[in-house]
Amino acid sequence: MIKIYKLFLVTLFFVSINSCGQSNKAERKDLMNNELQKTNKLINEKSPYLLQHSHNPVDWYPWGE
């Protein structure tokens, strides 16, 4: 079960690699180079796709208990 404390909803985004076509990778790289950029909980994953989103400001969780 997903632990819920002060938050109440769960959102799932399944995004295939297909959908990444329009994303701006150069810009993303700049974001990643920024040392102040936070990481979210995807940073410990192995999936290249999830790792690509480990520096989003959205506080992503991986699927899990």
Binding site: L9, T11, F14, V15, I17, S47, L50, D59, Y61, P62
Partner: peptide, 19 residues
């Protein structure tokens, strides 16, 4: 967007090829 989402949801991302 991230601020709104973080306030309201626990956001989960899934790699469909893994799962």
């Amino acid at each position: 967007v991230a601020a709104e989402m973080n306030k309201t949801f626990i956001s989960i991302k899934v790699d469909r090829e893994e799962r």
